[in-house]
Design a protein around this nucleic acid. Structure first.
Lengths: 339, 339
DNA sequence: CTGAAAGCGCTTACAG
DNA sequence: CTGAAAGCGCTTACAG
């Protein structure tokens, strides 16, 4: 490894000052066009590597944006991240990703690391129990935050998420329309705004249809395929014998369908199942999954844009921006079928 | 946002020098214990945030490690990343993640960004067609690279991956043992070392069993669930009427099983299907998937350790480290069953 | 259009 | 055990 090439190396080689080199490499019109070309060529020839830490120390902008969600391996977040990534790529920002696995501490460590690196902003789906101070820590140190998928009370921060209450009512109404009356709700937790909203939407839809709400028909907890799969046993042994299940998300729904199939029943015929999110996988599940499109790509794109706009100085409106969900009817739901 | 708190702020407040503050905050034994405590408390009270760019500019170590793979949304890489993350977390390193989607250019941009940020090292699953120079770029600038999952010729870099040729022969032999003779191979590409090795392993196993290799039984390409799902049509219309399929990975296998089920056949009975990787999902698929454990967690853990050891100065042996795959027999394979 | 000089916030020999 | 001073590699007014 040769001697490190820096601005001054190029400057000396060409008999110019570092100021000129710096300006030229950043395409400043202050530098004559042919000088600029000569400089750029020399930089390339010498294998010059721009030192962002030095620049960032001076300018106090790093080009780094942090993104932290519950779990990037969850395709729901994966689809959001993909949209964020493509939006940020375009603006030459580097993004640093992290999972918090709903650990407030892990999330705080991440925010601190980001501050230490001089992060320009952060997009986050806050961990369960996140105190307002943790978001303020970021904002107070000049690092704006944008929330996705989950909202927080007592905070004026731009938030992008689906309209969960409305979305789950679409699914519930769809089942009611097919004649189902004993409808279970599988998965989710009351500890997140999303969880509360979805359960409420389910309850409201049932009430509106004049169906009594039986709390025993709720099986809270599952949020993954594995969870849905394991919940199948509990679900199938419910004394009320539900004919349909509204699931927390597509993963739970697919897991549940696997569990139902394992028990010898046919999902979509014997038991109707709805998902939530409309992951890419929903349409190739067997049977293909009736679900609610939740606009992951939209959420990611809008959140990234909002942050970039904010960094560019324009004042994005704070508060909650709801994406309107849409029903996707496929094969996993059908008319009521008595077991 | 108040005035920025820096080392000198604390120094002035306490009537000490920045040198002492700096040492104290990093727990140097050079500073008296009570001075140290006083300093730490004051730092906390003032809301001091360590400026890593400044430190890194001085020390030329950043604590940043880059990880770039084909697609973090692919659970195969997700499982590797999880292992890397937990290993790196322990050593207080920050890791920056990126997808290259097999674009050499995107990968190069990532390596350059990492160099600009002063990355300490990089763990990568090289994009198809990666030139040796791109890895050298990193190494020549003092940023060691570790390869995972895919290897590269003409390079002395530590590489961690499964023994693909051996692994796929396990799956093929398992099917042969069940009486299958017309076995298709679905998915993968000759453009990666992994792809070539797996196809070769399949061919060798057939030959060893005295079964003629029919190139028409290979359907290259698919690497995702969607791909496997779509390949089902082609597979089911093969004039040779294969009774079993060795799939490129679990995703393709699950997609293929979905496609087979959609066509009214029962995977595991009418058609035997093997996967590869043993993703968490394999055991809850319906039917549960017979597959080959590929040691993702091992690969991630070992690669991270190798990098950390290298950074700590110990000389890790270069070259290829193979993880030995193991068979996992479940319900998706069974005795031959004529259609 | 180009240059000289200060400064971003740390750490590290070197003194004492 | 603590301090004074230089320097990491940039960018940015300010001069000319």
């Amino acid at each position: 490894m040769a001697q490190k090439v820096k601005l001054s190396t190029i400057a000396e080689t060409l008999g110019l000052s570092t100021a000129t080199i710096s300006l030229a490499l950043r395409d400043s019109p202050l530098v004559a066009a042919d000088t600029r070309e000569k400089i750029k060529e020399k930089a390339r020839a010498l294998g010059y590597i721009y030192n962002r830490r030095a620049a960032s120390l001076r300018t106090s902008r790093s080009g780094i944006i942090g993104v932290v969600v519950h779990d990037i391996m969850n395709p729901f977040y994966g689809e959001i991240l993909k949209a964020i990534e493509s939006e940020l790529d375009r603006s030459r920002h580097t993004f640093i990703l992290s999972n918090h696995y709903d650990s407030v501490e892990k999330q705080r460590t991440f925010i601190e690391t980001l501050l230490q690196l001089g992060g320009d902003g952060v997009i986050m789906s806050p961990a369960i129990g996140t105190p307002v101070e943790d978001i303020k820590l970021a904002e107070d140190n000049g690092m704006p935050a944008i929330l996705i998928a989950r909202q927080m009370e007592g905070l004026e921060v731009p938030t992008y998420r689906g309209d969960d209450s409305y979305g789950i009512s679409l699914a519930t109404n769809h089942l009611i329309g097919l004649g189902h009356r004993t409808i279970a709700m599988i998965g989710g937790t009351d500890q997140t705004s999303t969880g509360r909203d979805r359960y409420q939407g389910y309850v409201n839809a049932l009430r509106k249809a004049g169906i009594e709400v039986d709390p025993e028909l709720r099986i809270p907890g599952p949020r993954t395929k594995q969870g849905g799969f394991e919940a199948a046993v509990h679900f199938l042994s419910l004394p009320q014998k539900p004919t349909a299940a509204v699931c927390w998300n597509d993963l739970v729904a697919i897991g549940l369908m696997n569990g139902i199939a394992r028990a010898g029943l046919v999902p979509g015929r014997d038991i109707s199942v709805t998902g939530y999110d409309d992951l890419e996988e929903a349409s190739i599940a067997t049977p293909s999954l009736t679900t609610v499109w939740n606009g992951q790509a939209e959420v990611g794109r809008l959140a990234a844009r909002a942050l970039l706009d904010k960094l560019a100085g324009s004042h994005e409106p704070d508060g909650i921006h709801l994406i309107k969900p849409e029903m996707r009817i496929r094969q996993s739901t059908g008319p009521i079928h008595t077991r």
